[in-house]
Structure formats: C-alpha cells, structure tokens
Nucleic acid binder design. Structure first.
Length: 244
DNA sequence: GCGACAG
DNA sequence: ATCTTGTCGC
C-alpha cells in the first residue's frame, strides 16, 4: 500500500514534540469505524542491542490477519538502524520509519491497524497509533501491555473476559482497560484514528479468543523477532520482505 | 524537588 | 525493548 510521509523524521526532541502538536488535530477519534473488518493488520518492532539508544538494528513487522479465520494472509518486514532514542512520549519516532517501510510492501490494504502501544492514552494525546493512523489515513487503535498515562478503578474491572474499566487522565477518558481472558492481566486499548473506543475494544476481543494478546500482536511480535534474527545472521541478505 | 515513564 | 534461572499451576 502507499504511504506518504510529507515531512522529514525528526532527529531531536524539540522538533519531535512540535510535530506531534501539529499532527494531533488531524486525528479523528470519532467512530464508529470498521464494525466488521475482514483484514486487520498487526504491527510490532524488535530491537538488537539494549533497545534504548541510537544505531541499533531494528526489525519492523506487519501481519495482515483475516478476521474470518484468524489466519495470517500477508506478512511484510523491514529492517533499519534506529535514529531516535527511546523517550517515553516520543516512542513513535523510534518505530515509525521502519513500520512505514514495511507497510509500503503490503499488497492488501487493511481496514484497521492495531499497534503495539497507545493511541489517545498519551501525555499529549498523540501516541503511536494516532501517528500511524494519520500517516496512512486508515483506522488505527493502540493495544498496550502496560499503562502509560491515566488511572482506573480496579473495582470497576471484573475478572472475566470482556470486562473493562475506563482509563481516565486529567478528567478525560483516554482509553479502556480491557480483560481479554478470564483471570489474566488486562490490556490497555485506546483509539488512534477513524475508530471509536467501543469498536476498537470489540475488534481486540474478537482477535483474542484464546490468549491475552490479540493475534495481530502475537503474530507481529513473532515475525519481528524472526526478521531481526535473520538480519543479524545475514547482514548482506535482502532485508525487506513481503509474502502472501 | 521527587518519582514515574508505551516499546 | 532485551537479557535471563528458576518456579508455580493447569
């Protein structure tokens, strides 16, 4: 698929912050968004080295899953060298360049992107899922394994699959704390672009019939690790791949 | 000032 | 994120 990036990737914190502020108004958090998507993409990135600095080898992966079968119908990977350090709140600049390259290799156009990380549940309300949604123009949502901003009342969250509590930050509901399996730790879902929170949560639940994390996240995580290992083993082999 | 801080 | 041994439970 085609993805235009109408600006240079920031290399310093000040311009990275400024770009988030400039793009934030472009994110649409209203819905409903795709109620019954056939193709949902999962995205993730794996790192070599300590994973926090610059110059590390990174491998981005995108998997496209058919919601009817939960099978992966397409995979794409891209490797790169990190050009931005890990900074909480600016995390997207570390992963976006490689993720965009992987997305460009896709033949299918997903109807929803599920990102590893937050969307609206971000200090400036512009997490990775928002940035990716605005860049692609596709519906996007974030599924994070740990909280970043906001709080919730544990008493509101039952122990059964499908239960959820509002994630509130500065008086604003920025996401949901969602239990995807009975008795497991919840995941943190927030909107990124062109989808509302209830719809995003419904998709996450549908993609997580057996495990805590949705299949999109699990498959993308596996693929990114495999791609990283492959790139490390054969430094000169073609790094970017697509199949399916 | 101090602690916390997506992946 | 990544590096890691052992351990508890189904």
């Amino acid at each position: 698929m085609r993805v235009d990036v109408p600006y240079d990737w920031p290399t310093d914190e000040a311009s990275a912050l400024a770009l988030q502020d400039r793009l934030r108004p472009l994110a649409d958090h209203r819905g409903p968004g795709p109620g019954h998507p056939r193709l949902v993409a999962g995205l993730d990135v794996a790192y070599a080295g300590d994973g926090r600095g610059t110059g590390d080898l990174v491998a981005a992966a995108v998997v496209v899953i058919d919601t009817a079968t939960l099978e992966v119908v397409e995979r794409a990977t891209a490797t790169a060298t990190s050009t931005f350090p890990y900074v909480p709140g600016l995390f997207a600049y570390r992963e976006l360049p490689a993720l965009v390259e992987a997305l460009r290799l896709l033949r299918n156009t997903p109807e929803l992107l599920l990102c590893d990380g937050h969307g609206l549940a971000h200090p400036r309300r512009f997490g990775l899922a928002c940035h990716l949604g605005v860049l692609t123009g596709l519906p996007a949502a974030g599924v994070a394994k740990t909280p970043f901003v906001g709080a919730y009342d544990p008493a509101d969250l039952a122990g059964t699959r499908g239960s959820y509590a509002d994630l509130v930050d500065a008086g604003e509901t920025v996401g949901r704390v969602l239990r995807t399996q009975d008795g497991v730790k919840p995941v943190f879902v927030s909107t990124g672009h062109l989808v509302d929170l209830p719809t995003a949560c419904a998709q996450v639940l549908a993609l997580a019939p057996a495990y805590r994390l949705p299949e999109t996240t699990r498959q993308a995580d596996r693929l990114s690790r495999d791609a990283l290992a492959e790139a490390a083993a054969r430094p000169d082999a073609p790094a970017d791949t697509v199949e399916g």
